[in-house]
Design a binder for these strands. Structure first.
Length: 756
DNA sequence: TGTACTTAAGTTTTT
DNA sequence: CTTAAGTACA
């Protein structure tokens, strides 16, 4: 056995060296999941059980796929490229390109990202005269994607009511439109591949025999269709190595089905469920907190993380009066950590929702601390880049109506909405198959007709150029001919956009080089398929797929030693020396909106579990009594998740100087700020909801028996905090956020409320 | 056609 | 408060 097996713990070793059978690896946070996955592959190859071509490894993100490939090439002396390692979508894209004929797709089909998909839906809905109040595009997009992810075509969807029937009809029209345009959305990549294999026994058998070993990362995140896809590809004799963690399932809202783990055990007659519970990331107290929290969940396969390292520090819990005080505390602590030598990029600030980053950013900016916020627009999603790509898409496929509408009049060249409508009508009447073909047919006349002719000339020129020009030069040509570069250069704040356009050329240069070296999967088509188009057109199509499938990093500038700000969701898979989890207030984390869904609270708890397990050495948990939300103060109760952390793991932070201020500021008299020692009495919830009230009372002299922000006690619902009032006198109603029963409106007259 | 104003809504997100 | 999207107007 190779030395790659050295240093594995017994469970890891067991997982890596399992015989040829389907297995489920329950890999806790920080338990060396990726290592097990890659070592398993290396082992299968080194021991001669599999050839590289027999391996299919599927991930969710490009980042994970890349990471696996990097590690594999470090472990194996062989060329890693024979293996198929990629995202579900990347692999489907590859299969569909290879077998485009069987899949009834043009070989150079283009991929719609969610933005593209939404604009297509809007366009189609408008042309059908649908009421966008009754049928919001966003909802129709979800409907279509949900159907596809359930494996259902429009004709298979059961509609019980008129509303659904209309949606289903729209779904059918949408698919027809995609087919006309030769474009494919994300869900379609999966579904089309699934159908391709389901309908072609020969193909299916071919791949079933080829992929002797299928490995799936983040299995808890698979949706219904992905699971069916894996099941089909594995066939009766397949061997699926599924790695996942039900406790880290936080994407149910986008279709992830944790239940697939149980189904997998049943459907694949799994004999070995290997639990990886030894954690190599966090110190003891942090793990104890994570274990205690997640233990409150009922629906679990069951797992307990442990470490051979010491207990480490206690968690630091800080109750701030306001969100800005919370932010200031974090800033002060970050400065201290940095003084003690901790690199800034080893410190993360996590929050439940993006809106929370604002206060934090404000405080960081004032303190001149470098920081990086994850979650903005990605490179290929930027407007100017999308515009340039639209020209490229039209050069490759003139029937791409989405691309056509995006740029037919951008930069403005005198093609108005009416002209586009005329083209649209021609298409609807079946006179012409696409907007471009209608434009060519001279549907629009007059001055607009001339403008359209200009546009056609540009596209034709680009189309000819695309046959032989190398990709970067082609893009230069696009920027030039379309007038995009000049347009943005003339714009007041267009500097960044111009830079991004140049960056697009750079990206293309890089991509083209990698493509020529066969480093991109799309570059190695199956030998038995004759490629369509010239070589350069192949490169173009691959680049466009790349732009859709891999929209680029979420971060702004990489490399800088900056603090990392992100949502808890985007922190999954990452780790830091020090982590701040902020905004631990009822309604925020756990979030109000998730409390209505069943299983919502448990998912929020898993989210908290993910947040905690990001930290190696130091973990801060903070919350604020008052937080500005939507321009109004919002009064919060401490999150139940804070209470769920065993007291002995926590060190409650009390700032003497702030506590002093608090006493003097006239907060409620039973506030216990300033008393210290051990777990401060502040652990009681009535300590943080002591918001300044003066302003409110000025505005509403007809004071109610309670003040907004005041803590109250209800006979049935327990503790709560007053959020709002409505009406006066006997009709007055009071809104209270209760700790466990959510937010309620109560009739002041009847509710038995007492000041807490 | 582009700009200025109004209005509504605001959990999480990869491909 | 902020942002996006829609509407009115020059």
């Amino acid at each position: 056995m190779g030395d790659y097996l050295a240093n594995l713990n017994p469970e890891q070793l067991k997982a890596v060296t399992l015989p040829r059978e389907s297995a489920l690896i329950l890999a806790g946070a920080g338990s060396g999941k990726t290592r097990v996955l890659t070592t398993r592959i290396a082992h299968l190859i080194q021991s001669g059980q599999a050839s590289p071509a027999g391996i299919l490894a599927v991930t969710f993100t490009n980042k994970a796929a890349k990471e696996m490939l990097t590690r594999l090439s470090a472990m194996l002396p062989i060329n890693v490229r024979g293996m198929w390692v990629g995202t579900f979508h990347g692999i489907c894209n590859r299969l569909l390109r290879t077998h485009h004929r069987d899949a009834a797709l043009p070989q150079l089909f283009q991929i719609l990202d969610s933005g593209d998909q939404q604009s297509l839906i809007k366009r189609l809905a408008k042309s059908q005269g649908m009421d966008d109040e009754k049928f919001p595009p966003r909802q129709m997009q979800n409907f279509i994607n949900n159907c596809k992810e359930a494996g259902l075509r429009a004709n298979a969807v059961e509609a019980g009511d008129d509303f659904t029937r209309r949606m289903v009809a729209f779904y059918a029209d949408y698919d027809a439109q995609c087919n006309r345009e030769g474009v494919v959305d994300f869900a379609e990549l999966l579904l089309r591949t699934f159908e391709l294999l389901a309908k072609n026994l020969n193909l299916l058998t071919h791949y079933q025999e080829r992929f002797k070993y299928i490995l799936v990362d983040e299995f808890q995140d698979t949706n219904k269709l992905q699971y069916k896809w894996i099941k089909m590809l594995a066939g009766s004799n397949g061997c699926v190595f599924a790695v996942g963690d039900d406790d880290q399932s936080i994407y149910r809202f986008r279709g992830a089905e944790v239940g697939n783990m149980n189904d997998f055990v049943r459907d694949f007659a799994v004999e070995h469920v290997v639990k990886l519970e030894q954690n190599y990331r966090s110190q003891g107290h942090i793990l104890d907190a994570a274990n205690a929290i997640i233990a409150k969940n009922k629906a679990r396969l069951g797992k307990n993380l442990w470490t051979s390292e010491g207990k480490g520090e206690q968690l630091r819990v800080f109750a701030a009066a306001t969100d800005s005080e919370e932010a200031q505390y974090i800033v002060d602590e970050v400065k201290q950590l940095h003084r003690e030598g901790m690199p800034m990029n080893e410190i993360a600030l996590l929050y439940r929702s993006n809106a929370q980053s604002r206060v934090l950013e404000h405080a960081l900016f004032r303190a001149r601390l470098p920081y990086k916020v994850y979650g903005g627009l990605r490179f290929f999603e930027r407007m100017e880049v999308k515009h340039a790509l639209a020209y490229l898409r039209l050069a490759g496929n003139p029937d791409d109506d989405s691309a056509f509408t995006r740029v037919v009049n951008f930069p403005a060249r005198g093609v108005g909405a009416r002209s586009v409508e005329q083209l649209q009508e021609a298409v609807e009447q079946g006179i012409k198959p696409s907007l471009m073909s209608a434009a060519r047919a001279g549907v629009v006349s007059g001055r607009s007709g001339t403008a359209i002719a200009q546009f056609i000339a540009i596209i034709d020129l680009l189309r000819t150029a695309s046959e032989n020009l190398r990709l970067p030069e082609l893009i230069e040509e696009v920027l030039e001919r379309s007038n995009l570069a000049a347009h943005y250069a003339a714009e007041r704040d267009g500097q960044d956009r111009v830079e991004n356009l140049h960056e697009l050329v750079n990206a293309a240069t890089l991509f083209a080089e990698e493509f020529e070296h066969g480093e991109t999967p799309a570059g190695e088509a199956e030998a038995d398929v004759a490629p369509v188009g010239t070589h350069q057109q192949q490169v173009l199509a691959a680049f466009l797929s790349h732009a859709s499938l891999e929209a680029g990093e979420h971060e702004a500038a990489a490399g800088a030693d900056a603090l990392q700000l992100m949502t808890v969701h985007s922190s999954k898979g990452l780790e830091f020396h020090a982590v701040f989890v902020s905004g631990l207030e009822e309604g925020l984390f756990p979030h109000d909106n998730s409390m209505n869904e069943d299983g919502g609270l448990e998912e929020e708890r898993r989210l908290m579990y993910v947040a905690i397990t990001r930290a190696r050495k130091r973990l801060y948990v903070t919350y604020a009594g008052t937080r500005m939300l939507h321009g109004q103060p919002r009064y919060g109760m401490v999150s139940r998740f804070v209470d769920e952390i065993p007291a002995e793991l926590c060190k409650w932070i009390v700032l003497p100087e702030r506590a002093q201020t608090r006493w003097n500021s006239g907060a409620s008299s039973n506030s216990s700020w300033g008393s210290g020692g051990g777990r401060a009495p502040q652990a009681d919830p009535d300590r943080y909801a002591t918001a300044p009230r003066a302003k409110f009372e000025l505005e509403r002299p007809d004071a109610h028996p309670f003040a907004i922000g005041q803590n109250v006690q209800h006979a049935k619902f327990g503790e709560g905090v007053v959020l709002n009032f409505e009406g006066r006198g006997l009709d007055a109603r009071i809104q209270v956020r209760f700790k466990t029963d959510g937010t309620k409106w109560l009739a002041l007259q009847y509710a038995k409320l007492t000041a807490a």
